[in-house]
Design a protein around this nucleic acid. Structure first.
Length: 845
DNA sequence: GCAAGGTC
């Protein structure tokens, strides 16, 4: 029997589609990375075994050839022409292997990827992966085009299979290619240029991107409006009438008066009258519209403005609610329920909720209002609840997002809020005044979306046409125009959506990026206030090449790539044109960076004038300065050199200790209890072959240095299975061993209070291979039996030593052979080397 | 260390 493989974009969709197409008869098994649903059916007139599985979004992602990854060796300009490679997007998931093992022997491939351009591109990623192991012909490959995940639509798609659209996929390839070159070139250049000059930028990365930079631009634009705002004085005439013991304020139909003299004249004019005559009274019934079905962007706006929850967090919470079955898929552009959506069934899940259950039951019995028409983007149905839930089971944030989803869903099926509005006009002399008010007739959906609730505001008196009232003395009051507030996150989301910057899934990422890069800060009310760095970047682009920050940049690029998608232009020509345009812009930017730099000079401090003296430079023996703002680094003013340091922790001097290779004073890095010693020079320019870039002394194979791995490494790390547990010689009396893999967080406290702990590098435990330690306590405080103050033995096997290690015995295993203490036993020992060359000579005999 | 786009 032939086999057909069908592939969806995510596991949840594969499950739903398989269920629909098999009529619920499919069986599921675990695949290599994602589940596979199988059933027997007929395909193109043959009995076949059907397998439905999925990927997780993009299978591949574009990157530069690895030789371009060295920031110091590659001129960013080269990135515009550098060769690129496709890398597996999530190597840990092994999606390629999964597709290949499922696709190896299939006769047909049916692609059920999301029906948008990205989905079309993923189709070809799937095809490429499978073609490596199966020579499928094009006539064995099909594309299902569906516009909703409903029985009718999915079955129809299955019966009218088409072909994947290569042009649409190529448009995505082009976008990926340009974004990569453009973003990385500008980011690397800016970062190196400004970090090499200033010490207080406080950002590890000064990034540029065709989405994030215009996003930043919006925030700075509002900042500039606020900064350059000059309040303008204006005048208003305030007047009240006395009616049935009430004082009713009237609104002047002339509104703001910007000319003071004019105000005075009008005031004098009004003072000649002491009566207001009701000219007209109009009653009307008005509506406040119920909301549409909720899509992602709307949810993000509501969460930010109503709940004070940021987009990144909102999506995380929503994702969790979706995985646990409380809400439907949270990433969708569609804000219209599909025609056969089970509105009543979904509504019924909320019948017994303690907050909105009453309202729901009434709605069910009186009948729902048909939802407003929105637009169906063919991706996923709007975000709706899937089942009942209580605050206790969801936790605070989960409950808040769940409530938002439920309330919007219920509101979208509720009547509009209706209210009676009254407009009354008065004449005082020849001048017109008004008074308005309203009264809610039916709260409709606002009874469940409380924040939309309207308050009654009818005037206290029933006015009738022709009635006359005494006016109180009119007053001319001076006021002034005020600037707008800083941009709210919800306004920013609206702007991004309007200009086509980012997508529902990536908008939160772009906003988060400009925050973590320290370009903007989120203030109270989730307003985005740009920081100096963000302001100067945008002002700098505006001085050099305003296109770089214009909101239209993204849509202009997309427009060009649309031509590829529509088959109207050739991929290579369009891409080459776009790349060369931005290459020229890049060159121009590099040549004119001084115009941005002039702004930086006024606000930031030169590297040579920042930081505090810390340790001696091995090249000139003068003190180097530690720049503690991000990125933390050491700067030698005399040599005009900057040395990178590990990030995220703190640096202290390891007094009196000098690297035997280069005479740089050693420093200690400490991050969350884990600490290691490092030489600033070796960390940046490792002089010994096996040491690797960005390593501390705990990875240095120097044979005699007391801080290097051969003298300090104790045993293999079992947490990460890659590094070694190394004694930190600087950690006493709270002695610690920590893993020498930077990423591994394993720290083991040993022999707290000991006066000396030392490793005997040439002496291993016969049982487990661990290096023998010498542990010495003060004789008065020794924990050892019979007053013994010094013991040599194995931390794992020695009966008196092992209890003093804060890690269970089981976590130690036999030491791995053949790795770890690189260079052990290779050195000659004896006299310490005096110069770098001597040290290297001694080492490489 | 870099972009933006999928998804977890």
């Amino acid at each position: 029997m032939k086999t057909v493989l069908m592939v969806a974009e995510k596991p949840s969709l594969a499950a739903s589609i398989a269920k629909i197409l098999s009529g619920g008869s499919s069986t599921s098994r675990k695949g290599r990375s994602n589940p596979v649903h199988e059933y027997d059916t007929t395909f193109r007139g043959e009995k076949v075994n059907m397998k439905m599985t999925s990927v997780c979004g993009h299978v591949m992602s574009l990157d530069f050839n690895s030789k371009y990854n060295n920031w110091d060796a590659v001129d960013p300009l080269e990135l515009f022409t550098a060769t690129t490679v496709q890398k597996e997007s999530m190597p840990k998931l092994n999606i390629v292997q999964h597709l290949q093992s499922e696709g190896k022997t299939i006769s047909y491939l049916v692609l059920w990827l999301d029906c948008d351009r990205e989905g079309e591109n993923i189709c070809f990623e799937v095809i490429d992966a499978i073609k490596e192991v199966n020579r499928l012909r094009d006539d064995q490959i099909f594309r299902a085009k569906f516009s909703a995940i409903t029985d009718v639509d999915i079955k129809k798609a299955f019966n009218t299979l088409g072909k994947p659209n290569e042009n649409e996929s190529l448009a995505v390839d082009a976008r990926q290619n340009l974004d990569l070159r453009l973003g990385c070139a500008f980011t690397r250049f800016q970062t190196k240029y400004f970090q090499g000059k200033y010490g207080d930028l406080d950002s590890t990365l000064i990034s540029y991107g065709p989405c994030q930079t215009p996003t930043l631009g919006f925030c700075v634009e509002r900042h500039d409006i606020i900064q350059t705002f000059t309040p303008e004085p204006y005048w208003v005439i305030e007047i009240c009438i006395s009616a049935e013991n009430f004082e009713v304020p009237l609104t002047y139909s002339r509104g703001r008066i910007f000319d003071q003299q004019c105000g005075h004249i009008l005031l004098l004019l009004l003072k000649q009258h002491n009566e207001a005559v009701v000219q007209s009274v109009k009653y009307s019934t008005q509506k406040k519209q119920r909301p549409q079905a909720m899509n992602t962007v709307e949810m993000l706006r509501f969460a930010s403005s109503g709940l004070g929850m940021g987009p990144q967090q909102t999506m995380q919470v929503a994702e969790r609610l979706y995985i646990s079955g409380y809400i439907s898929y949270p990433r969708t552009e569609t804000n219209s329920y599909p025609p056969n959506f089970d509105l009543m069934g979904t509504l019924a899940t909320q019948k017994s909720n303690s907050h909105w259950g009453d309202f729901v039951r009434r709605l069910i019995s009186t009948g729902i209002t048909s939802p407003r028409k929105g637009s169906d983007h063919g991706d996923h149905p709007p975000i709706t609840p899937m089942r009942a839930a209580s605050e206790a089971e969801l936790g605070s944030d989960g409950w808040r997002i769940f409530s938002l989803v439920c309330q919007n869903f219920i509101a979208s099926l509720s009547p509009d809020c209706t209210y009676e509005k009254v407009d009354i006009t008065f004449m005082i002399g020849d001048e017109e005044f008004t008074c308005t008010g309203s009264k809610v007739l039916d709260p409709g959906f606002t009874a469940v979306q409380h924040w939309q609730k309207m308050e009654d505001s009818l005037p206290p008196v029933q006015f009738v046409k022709g009635a006359r009232y005494r006016t109180k003395e009119p007053r001319l009051t001076q006021k002034a125009t005020t600037p707008p507030g800083y941009l709210t996150e919800s306004e920013l989301i609206t702007l991004m959506e309007k200009h086509g910057i980012g997508t529902d899934a990536s908008i939160p990422v772009h906003i988060n990026n400009i925050c973590v890069r320290n370009f903007v800060t989120i203030a109270s009310g989730r307003r985005l206030i740009p920081n100096t760095l963000g302001i100067l970047l945008v002002h700098g682009y505006q001085r050099i090449d305003p296109d770089l920050v214009k909101p239209s940049m993204r849509s202009e690029i997309e427009k060009q790539f649309d031509l590829i998608a529509d088959g109207k232009a050739n991929f290579d020509i369009v891409l080459a044109h776009a790349v060369s345009t931005f290459q020229a812009k890049y060159k121009y930017f590099v040549e004119n960076t001084e115009y941005m730099d002039q702004l930086f000079e006024l606000s930031f401090t030169k590297l040579s004038e920042t930081g505090k003296s810390l340790s001696k430079c091995g090249l000139c023996t003068r003190y180097m300065k530690l720049i503690s703002q991000k990125p933390m680094r050491l700067h030698c003013k005399n040599c005009e050199a900057t040395y990178k340091l590990p990030q995220g922790g703190s640096i202290k001097l390891y007094q009196g200790n000098v690297c035997p290779l280069d005479q740089f004073e050693l420093v200690v890095y400490n991050a969350g209890g884990k600490s290691f010693i490092l030489c600033p020079y070796c960390y940046n320019f490792p002089e010994i072959e096996d040491m690797g870039n960005n390593s501390g002394c705990n990875k240095c194979p120097h044979p005699t240095c007391l801080n290097a791995a051969p003298q300090t490494s104790v045993t293999s790390c079992q947490t990460c299975d890659e590094g070694d547990l190394v004694l930190d010689p600087n950690s006493g009396p709270a002695w610690r061993m920590s893993c020498n893999e930077l990423k591994c967080t394993c720290v083991v406290k040993i022999f707290t209070g000991a006066v000396r702990v030392a490793v005997s590098p040439d002496n291993d435990c016969d049982t487990c291979g661990t290096s023998i330690l010498t542990v010495e306590f003060n004789p008065e405080k020794t924990p050892f039996k019979e007053g013994v103050s010094k013991i040599m033995g194995c931390v794992i096997c020695h009966v008196e030593l092992s209890p003093l290690v804060e890690l269970s015995r089981q976590q130690f295993k036999r030491r791995r052979r053949g790795r770890g203490r690189g260079g052990k036993g290779r050195g000659r020992g004896g006299r310490k080397p005096r110069t770098k060359d001597e040290a290297l000579d001694q080492y490489f005999v």
